[in-house]
Design a protein around this nucleic acid. Structure first.
Lengths: 137, 137
DNA sequence: ATCGACTTTGACAGAGAGTTTCACAAGGCG
DNA sequence: CGCCTTGTGAAACTCTCTGTCAAAGTCGAT
């Protein structure tokens, strides 16, 4: 049960997009990547997934760039994790064997709680200025 | 965020131990492994970790075997996961970079909720007979 | 002592994560 | 049109870790 670096990167860049609340070009993203100590080429790939998943939009050519597809209040950690990892808690083939069904049921309950909590945390809350130094480029 | 097979195996074997509530020999464990479709040699290794972590006790020689170290009500999913994986939700180095602190704080809250829920689910509840076919050897 | 039963260690294949590279596609502008 | 900027997509590579197996080791009861 480990939070992947990928999800972490995705969250961070989305928070930045939420704060900017405008269209941000690749050049800007790359600068951001340097500041956040994230490999830029990887970040760009993640951006692609976020776009395919409908969380952000992009435009090519001059004046191109990325922007949130919805208001920050309408994007939660749950959206991000399920998009990037497929599920907040992947049970694998946990329902096999003698006590498998019972144990799997317990994990399903845990997953429900986890998903509910993740759905509560929106980009709006994450991007709120209050408390914690934010980096302005 | 994936539940590892190892944790799943550990949960299942612990549920079985909770149900038996006596000392179970390796021979029995291996039969159990066959029934649960778990590689016996791996299961034995996991048993070793559970023992080192203090969740079960073992005895060698004739009349040897494994037993829970505490009453089933005093062992929860939280105990099992933290013992096997180190943490219910490993944040990695998520606190770096510009928005890192903020995002990490959010995940810490999520982790707290997750841990609380896992702590609620005890072996006693999992081993309860009510509802769901249990496998008796 | 010795046999039965648990313990430890090491090796290994495969999968997946994180990263890099490179060639391609598309919008703007002269 | 043709070029330049900016984003897209896919492949390949390294590294770590998980799940698995096997074999030699150690302890305890009788």
């Amino acid at each position: 049960m480990k939070l992947s670096v990928k999800v972490d990167y995705a969250c961070r860049v989305l928070v930045q997009l939420a704060r900017m609340d405008g269209r941000e070009g690749l050049a800007h993203i790359e600068e951001l990547a340097r500041i956040e100590a994230v490999p830029a080429t990887y970040l760009v790939q993640i951006l692609g997934e976020l776009r395919n998943g409908g969380l952000i939009t992009s435009r090519r050519g001059k004046q191109g760039g990325y922007a949130l597809a919805r208001p920050p209040a309408a994007i939660s950690l749950l959206d991000i994790v399920t998009l990037i990892e497929g599920d907040v808690l992947d049970l694998g083939g946990a329902a096999e064997g003698a006590s498998g069904k019972r144990v799997a049921q317990a994990w399903r309950e845990v997953r429900a709680v986890l998903a509910a909590k993740c759905a509560e945390v929106t980009l709006e809350k994450l991007a709120a200025k209050a408390g914690g130094e934010m980096y302005y480029i």
